[in-house]
């Protein structure tokens, strides 16, 4: 009875657009789920100093929320501007570059000197290099006459491989002590999130999410294709440029905080499209972000409590994400 009335109300407001209530419902449910998972993670089996435990757990949760939203937003934005739902920023070599920057800096200046730099400055420089990479990708995407998506993807994969190989090479010639420090730096898991870095990252993510808000409506038009978007009055070049900047910053944030979480973005964005049943950006980035945060916080909780932290969360994400990616490819091929 109440549900019926609610449905009618939604139908009237949505003027018959199919299922307009569904994305809202999904967002609400995801919000509730996220709140529950967070509360569980924060309060389960609290021992010892309450202040200390809550601060430690709060930092972890903060890190995971940030990474979740950063990765999800980056994936959705990349999908929209390339009109392709099976790309991830990591497939384009974004996070491989970030790892290379850190490794290269450790090699050139030593990890001690590298760590001595103020975290904000270090992060600023890293983001700067990432933005330069995004600018090059942008030229590839829209510079020439033939805006070829496949060229872009291929270039991304190849540069990603080059970055990873370079990283591996540098690691091999690195001093073993330096290497250990670097490894800690690169695969800093969620348990050891640096406080200053967390604050810088939070600021960056909030700025990006607020700054991209006015774009969301235009992204709906971009999603239906470049020429339609231009016809509908969207400044396509400008929107794509801003999205690539946002992606570069968001990937920097998530990689700096917890290292490469390769398939998480692909996984959560596609789950968000499926659950909400829409491509509209009023819903999808938020839904994807919440799914990512739920997966991270819930996953970390299960790892800690069930598996006693023997496995890394990023390993499990890559494993599940890889399987999901293959399923996606098979389904796309079948269409």
């Amino acid at each position: 009875m109440l549900v019926d009335r609610w449905r009618t109300a939604l139908a009237v407001r949505g003027r018959g657009i199919p299922d307009r209530g569904r994305p809202v419902l999904v967002l609400v449910l995801l919000g509730i789920l996220l709140a529950m998972v967070t509360a569980l993670f924060m309060t389960y089996d609290l021992k010892g100093s309450l202040d200390f435990a809550l601060e430690l757990r709060g930092r972890k949760v903060g890190g995971m929320l940030l990474v979740g939203f950063a990765v999800a937003y980056a994936a959705v934005l990349l999908h929209t501007i390339t009109n392709n739902r099976i790309l991830t920023p990591s497939l384009m070599g974004f996070d491989a570059l970030f790892v290379l920057i850190q490794t290269g800096a450790a090699f050139l200046f030593g990890t001690l000197a590298f760590l001595a730099i103020d975290v904000r400055l270090r992060f600023g420089i890293e983001v700067g290099i990432m933005l330069a990479f995004a600018a090059i990708l942008y030229r590839l995407l829209f510079g020439g006459e033939n805006r070829d998506l496949f060229l872009l993807v291929l270039a991304g994969i190849i540069t990603g491989t080059v970055f990873s190989s370079l990283t591996a090479l540098i690691m091999r010639v690195l001093d073993p002590n330096e290497f250990l420090t670097l490894q800690d730096l690169l695969f800093a898991n969620f348990s050891t999130v640096n406080r200053d870095l967390l604050l810088v990252s939070a600021a960056a993510v909030v700025v990006i999410i607020v700054a991209t808000r006015p774009l969301l409506g235009q992204l709906d038009a971009v999603a239906i294709g470049r020429e339609h978007a231009i016809n509908l009055g969207v400044n396509h070049r400008a929107v794509v440029r801003q999205c690539l900047v946002a992606i570069a910053v968001l990937v920097s944030v998530s990689t700096a905080l917890v290292g490469p979480v390769a398939f998480l973005g692909l996984l959560v964005s596609n789950m968000a499209y499926q659950l909400t049943g829409t491509f509209r950006h009023r819903y999808t980035p938020a839904a994807a972000g919440m799914i990512a945060a739920i997966a991270l916080i819930g996953g970390q909780f299960i790892l800690q409590e069930v598996f006693a932290s023997v496995v890394r969360l990023s390993v499990i994400i890559s494993f599940i994400g890889g399987i999901y990616f293959i399923l996606l490819l098979l389904r796309e091929a079948g269409r």
């Binding site: 038009a221 239906i224 339609h228 509908l232």
Partner: peptide, 16 residues
């Protein structure tokens, strides 16, 4: 069109 749209949703884009 890169995403899945109904006829009505497509036509609505004309009002964008």
């Amino acid at each position: 069109v890169a995403v899945r749209l109904t006829v009505k949703e497509l036509v609505e884009f004309g009002r964008f």
